[in-house]
């Protein structure tokens, strides 16, 4: 019980540290949010289509924009730790690697939620397709997709952080690994945007399975990535 409480306390402190760091260096997250807006604008500029036709396309494009803007957050997550030897100092603390993973995962999850909030507003304004026709279901899809995306992204961010070409490697590895998330989230969103939503819960189930598998796996294997 004490061990669990210690882990929760360490998780809170690590999360607090990451959020404080982001707050003090707004250049990182503001760049990420700006990229989200630019991507949404660029995509919509190319789509001179009637609203009904756009409705079928917007879901996939939304998740593609979320992927690219979110990758920036995931890359920063560990790159910042590597600077000035912060990573080595962090590993000296008596904190389980799984706790560090969960704290980083939470920080990345919050960053992705922020990106999605901006993208929802940008896509709704630029495309004139109301993404929030079924807000509760859409929020559920966003949360599950972000959890899956953040879990794989956090692991890959740690994995590539010590490698020289980490930026390109992260995108190259992340895209195929999170393709089930992008496919399922896009399909669920497309169904939610339709006049009569189909079986979107099935896609939500797949997103939940993905999130559970990779959060559990990440907690187990993160230890092997902290041995440097």
């Amino acid at each position: 019980m004490t061990l669990l409480l210690d882990s929760v306390r360490a998780w809170c402190w690590l999360l607090h540290k990451d959020l404080l760091r982001e707050w003090r260096a707004p250049r990182g997250w503001s760049g990420m949010l700006l990229l989200a807006v630019v991507l949404a604008a660029l995509i919509e500029m190319q789509l001179e289509l009637p609203r009904e036709l756009k409705r079928g396309l917007v879901a996939g494009l939304f998740w593609l924009a979320a992927f690219f803007a979110g990758t920036l957050a995931l890359e920063r997550s560990f790159a910042a730790e590597r600077e000035c030897g912060c990573w080595s100092a962090l590993l000296l603390y008596p904190v389980a690697p799984g706790t560090i993973f969960l704290a980083k995962l939470t920080a990345n999850f919050l960053a992705l939620c922020l990106v999605d909030a901006v993208l929802v507003a940008a896509f709704t304004i630029f495309s004139d397709v109301p993404l929030l026709t079924r807000p509760a279901a859409f929020a559920g899809i966003l949360l599950l997709a972000n959890l899956g995306f953040a879990s794989v992204g956090t692991l890959l961010g740690a994995l590539t952080s010590g490698i020289q070409q980490r930026g390109s490697l992260l995108v190259l590895l992340l895209l195929p690994l999170v393709s089930p998330v992008i496919l399922s989230a896009a399909q669920a969103t497309r169904l939610l945007l339709a006049d009569s939503p189909g079986d979107w819960q099935r896609w939500a189930q797949l997103l939940a399975v993905f999130a559970v598998v990779f959060v559990s796996l990440g907690t187990l294997v993160f230890e092997f990535l902290t041995e440097d």
Partner: peptide, 21 residues
């Protein structure tokens, strides 16, 4: 070590890719 972690992640991902598609 790094490749082994990536290989394990790939192994977990493939059934999900197959199921999703």
């Amino acid at each position: 070590r790094i490749s082994a972690v990536l290989a394990v992640l790939t192994l977990a991902d493939v059934p999900l890719v197959v199921m999703a598609t």
